[in-house]
Structure formats: C-alpha cells, structure tokens
Design a protein around this nucleic acid. Structure first.
Lengths: 217, 217, 217, 217
DNA sequence: GATGAATGAGTATTCATTCAT
DNA sequence: AATGAATGAATACTCATTCAT
C-alpha cells in the first residue's frame, strides 16, 4: 500500500517530469556561486545530467532560465510562518527572536537563500527581478515585523521607536548572514565562521532589550 | 603668474598621469553596476574618454584592471579614524555610535563603498580578492570594534555579552546598508529609501541600550 | 544492396568524423603557404567548409591546430621503406639512388612535404616541434642512410669517407628540393623549374661515383 | 691625422647617420629568428636603441622595413669573388671547391645569410622579393657555376653531365647549410652540429670525383 | 629630428542558441 | 523528446601606425 495514496510514476517518467526541476537546481547552485554572466548554460546542463540542447527545450533562453530560478526559489519564509505565529505564546520579544530563528531555519540555512545573494549581486542587471523580490519577499517580511513591532509598542511592551528604522535592525543581520554565507563565508577559515543561530539569538536579545521599556520595579 | 608655484605640465603629460586614475574611476562605476563579467573593457575605456588600446597600456588585462580597482578603492575607513578615536570624549556607547556614523560618512556614503558590493558579488570568482578584503578591511574594523566592546565590558559599562557575536551586530547593518545602496536601492521608489544616518543612529542606540547594564537607581 | 557491406553512416555522422581531417588538410595548405602567424584560423575554417567556431570544437587553439598539423603529417617515408629495402637486389649505389627516389615519391612529392618547409620556417618559434621533427624524421632517415653507407664501406664498395658528412650529401639535396618546391618554386617560370627525379638521379649517380673505389681493371 | 682621410663626424652626428643601419641590423636578426609576422616593430626599435616612432621616420611601414632589410643584406657573394676567380690557379675541381668555401666564408657564415632563410620562409608572402632574390643572388651564382662546369666539360676535365642539374648539386648543400643554421641548428645539441667547412670540402670532393672522367692510366 | 602616448583595425577565442538527426 | 554538432555574434587583447609635444 502506498501511504501517500499518490500514483507512483515509472522511474523513467518521473525523471522526465523532473527535468525542469533538476535544471533549476543546478542553475541555482551555479548562478549563486558564479553570478549570471560567469555561469555557462552548458555547465548547468551538465550538472543536471542533460545536454545543452535539452536545457533550451525547457527554457527559451539563459535569461529565462535565470528568471525561472529566481521565481522558483523565492519562497515566502516569513509569510509561511505567519499562521503559526498567531498561536505563538510569549512576549513580543520572544516572538521576534522566534521569527528570526524561524526565518533562518526555513530560508537562510537552505540553498534557496542563495537567491538573496543572487538578487543583490545582479539587481542592477535585472531590475524587474529586484522589484519582484522586494515585492514578494522583502515587503511581506517587513509587514510582518512591522505588525509585531507596532503591536508591542501599542501594548507598552516596546518603547515608541521609529518602526520603519527598527525594521531594518531586524532584517539587516539576516540578509547580512545570507550574503556572507554565499560570498565571504567560503573564503574564511572554519575557525572564523559566523555561527548563525547564536548570532541571531544574541542579536535578537540585544534588540529586544534595547526596545523594551525600562523595568519599573 | 602661476598662483600655485607648481610647474604646469603640458596637456599631454598631465593627461598621461591622470589616465590610470580616470580608468580606475570608470571601471569602479561599471564593475559595481554590472559586475565583472558583464562589464566590457571597451565601455570602461569609453567612459574614461580613451580608446580600448589605451586601457591596455595601463592594465595588462581585464582581471588586472579589476584587481587594481579593488586595491585602489579599498581604504581603511575605520582604521583611519582610529587616531581621532583616542581623543573621543564620551561614553563607550557614544563612541560606538560615533564610529558607525564616521564609517558611513568616510566610506559607506562614498563611491568607494561600491567595492564592498563588488567583493561580495564576485567573492567566489576572485577568492584572493575576498581574502585580501577580509584582511585589509573587515579584520581591522572588527579589531577596532572588539577593543571598544571589551573595554566597555571591562569598565562595567556594557554587560558581559559574547563580544565576537556583538561585533557582527555592529557591522552587519553597515555592510547591509552598502549592499542595499548598490543593489536594491536604485530600484526602490524614493519614498521607501532607507535613510542611512537615521538608521545607524537608531540602531546604535538600540544596541547600546541592549548592551548596557540595567540602571541601578 | 550495399556493395561494401559497411554500415552507411548518416550524413551528419560521416561529416563529423571527417571534420578533423578536413581541418588539418586546410590548415596544412595555409600554414605551408603563409606561415603560422600570417594564417587566420577563420580562413582555415572557411577552406574546410565550416565556421570559425567549429574549428575550436576540434582544436583548442591555433597553436594546437598547428602542432596537430605537424604531428599528423610527419610521416616516416624512409623508415616505411625500410622493410622493402631488405629485399633490394643491387649494389649499394643502386640502393642509395633507389632510396632517394623513394623518399621523393613517398614524401617530397606529396602535400605532406610542406611540413618540412613549415618546420624550417617556424623552428625558432616552435622549438619543441623542431626537436620532434628531428627525432621522428631526420634521425631515422639519417640512421638508414648511415647503415647503407657503413655497409658499403665495410664491403669495400665505397671508399672510407667520413660517413657523418656523407650523410648530408645525401639528405641536403632532398631537403633543398622540398624547401624550393614550397618557397621559390611557385615564383619561378615553368622553364626554370627544377626537375626533381632527374636531379635526384643525377645527384645520386654523381655521389655514388664519387664514393666508389677507383675501378681496378 | 686620420689615416682614412675621411672627416670624422661628431659622435652624436655619426649615430644619427647610422640609425637606419642600426635598425636594419636589428630587424635582420629578428626577422630571421621569428619571421616577418611574428616580429614586432617595437622590438626592432628597442634592439636598435630607438623609439617606435623613430623607426617610422626612416621606414614608412613594417613591410618597407622588411624589403629594405632584404635589399640591404642581399649581397652578391659569388659575383664578388668572380674577379679573384679569374686569377685562380688550379684544376676546375679545385676551383669548384674553392668557390664553395668562399661562398660559405663570405656569406653563409655571416649574419647576412639569414636573408636566404628569410626569403625561403616568406617567399609566398613576398613574391616580388623572392623574384628579386632569384635574380640578384641565385641566378648570378648559378651562372658562375655553370660557366665553370661548362668549361671543365669542354676541356675534357669533367664528363658531359647535364649542367643544369649539376648546378643544383653544387648549390643545394650550400642553401641547405644556411637554412639549417638558421632553423634546426639552434635546436640541436652541440655534438650534432654540422661542421660546414668539412662538409663542404668533402661534398665538393665527392662531386668533383663524380664529375671527373675515369682516370686513364 | 625624436619621442612615446594614443589609436583602432584586426584576430583568437568564447558561448548562447539553433537544428538536423 | 533528446542530442550534440554547428553557428556566428560578441569580446578580450595585440600591434602597426599616427601625431602632439
């Protein structure tokens, strides 16, 4: 019995259907590592185990492949967590820390986070993609954080700081971590690697402490 | 009368001495904007107002031009301010904020900051340059911040947090600002631009508050 | 009915296998005619009936093409004839004449002899090729001639001349003929062309007569 | 007193007047070594101790420089010796050997002999120069040898061989020696160098013996 | 005359894209 | 659908030639 109740395709068939996915995976790796221009489509095809010609069967051009890679891997990590967030029990400060760690585990630590590096690196060459990314990823993320901060301020948990600026104090370290991971990170000796969870945890706690009202004993 | 009392070089001579600088300027702009691979040497030459051949008179290859651009523009903004730092009057918290703002004015806000974006984007293609950048820019900056944090903790001004992690809470927003400025920034509507000084100021104050010992009334 | 009983390859396949050979042929012609530097790869490709890009599919660089041309066309005309030589019936003098004519027919008169001109012309630019040629062509040829001369002397057929010098009296005219054919030859009016077989025949006879012991009546 | 009775120019002046000569010398060396296309005018100028611009003051183009090099160095070695030849005492055989050795000492052994190699190598690229060379060098040389051979035959000293073919038996080894010296020679270990005078001497003697009538005791 | 900085036409080489099989 | 041979536009780099100083 097949526990998922899904039809099991023949191996051959499945592979065929996965072709675009395998190509996108290979392309993600290479685009992140080398950038758009320095990546050769032949290398992408080779890594996906198909011929150059096959790639063009699925993607009409290198640029289209690039756009597909971005659109495919741009997930909505914070938004996905939005539902769970509703059930979160704890202070706003704890929520903020939890959100940042969630973002790291769901996105920052995954291969998909290479997209952020890619977008940053190629933004001026692909402004539409940059705009797309802002709209689909940055804005929703900011909206979520904004809500948390505004509520915390309204509830007297946080001081009435400039929320739009505080937003960036939350997101900058996350984007920084991702950029670092995909650029300088591979060049650093192991001993000097940044430890993401620990950094996020301490950063969140510093921020929360900085945002909190002074304790009135 | 020549007011500067300096010998006036002939037009040809003066231009000759200026060539490398003009080319490096043009190349910085284009490399930052389009990345290494997508920048054509002819375009660099044209922007510097010379022909393709002239560029190769001063730089033996495109890669050498790239390296020269990096080495030329990698300044040591924090280190430069190290002397003045010694005379700073104020708390460690004020010093930290002052340092971050100085860094922005001396480097982040200038064209040279494009180097940081460039390095991050091309790090995996030019690992030697990435290592060079870490050694010449990141490390000295971190050392400076480390000193300040350690002293503040020793003096009982800051809580005994993990200094290596706190370092990144200081530097991440700065590098983030620079990346943003050279990537997403140009794609954003004016209304949504990040205001660097205000962000840095608030971020510094949040951090300092988060690092400070609780007030003992 | 396929008279050869061989599978008939598709047009594309057949052409593919022929490509390297066609390119080498075209390159031989042009390199011999114009030298290495003055030959454009595009011209080679055009003469082989393919595009510039195709050439680089088979040879990674112009220099590699050049080396392949040399290695491909360096045949061992004298050595090839070594087997037949064993069965030769006649005097050493007749053998010498026969060898020289054989060399001409098997090599000197063919397109491949352009290689000798090429090597001589480009020897200082490609010393490895010159060494290769000496080792693969010159040395074996000299060895063969040396053997014949030494045996003839040992058998009292030839006078005891300096064999190493006599070697060159045999080979110089042959190499001269080849050089001439590919350089001055095409510039000469037909009436002044050197007639290779006649020249070789007379030269061989002069040499043999010069080498022979005086007739003892 | 100046023994030559020529005005002694100032050093500066003399150098100026020698400029073309120094350039031609430098160019000869380089053209012979690398061929026409692979020789850079800048290198020629540098070797002559002047700037690239100065070269073009004296020679309107690289091709003109090449032609000047050829015309300047094409001497008439055999013809020059023609006068002395008239006073030669000895047999035709001795004369032939003497002529060949003279040619070597006056031309083959000198730097100017590089011209022969150059002409052979570049003949198809510069047919006018090849024709010029044939007319100015080859033909007169052949004419001289032809005269000697014809006379020797007429006088019953030599057998009535085909003079036009015998010509080449005289000249081929000489041209071969020159080609070798400037191409394969530099690539050969010292132990395998051809010794020109000894080779010429033995070759001449073989030829003369081959040409001579059988001794009638 | 002499210089050497500047030029730009020319060439090797790369690589996205096409298409016959 | 899949292949990979073929293409040719694009681009880094060279070098003979010019010309202002």
């Amino acid at each position: 019995m097949n526990p998922t109740d899904l039809p099991v395709p023949h191996k051959r068939e499945r592979r065929k259907q996965d072709r675009p996915g395998e190509l996108l995976d290979a392309a993600l790796d290479l685009f992140v590592e080398k950038g758009f221009a320095a990546t050769r489509v032949e290398e992408v095809a080779a890594r996906a185990g198909v011929s150059k010609g096959t790639l063009f069967l699925y993607f009409p051009s290198k640029e289209d492949l690039f756009k597909a890679v971005v659109r495919e891997n741009v997930v909505h990590p914070v938004t996905q967590g939005a539902g769970e967030m509703a059930h979160f029990k704890g202070t706003s400060g704890e929520l903020l820390e939890w959100m940042m760690l969630q973002w790291w585990h769901r996105y920052g630590a995954t291969k998909a986070s290479g997209i952020s590096k890619l977008i940053m690196s190629e933004a001026t060459n692909f402004p539409e993609l940059a705009a797309f990314y802002r709209q689909e990823v940055i804005e929703p993320g900011q909206a979520l954080v904004r809500t948390v901060l505004q509520r915390a301020i309204a509830q007297g948990e946080f001081r009435p700081v400039d929320v739009e600026l505080a937003l960036h104090s939350v997101m900058a370290p996350l984007l920084f971590l991702v950029m670092w991971k995909h650029s300088m990170g591979p060049c650093c000796p192991v001993s000097e690697q940044i430890k993401p969870e620990q950094f996020i945890t301490q950063h969140a706690q510093l921020l929360v402490r900085g945002l909190s009202l002074p304790q009135t004993p």
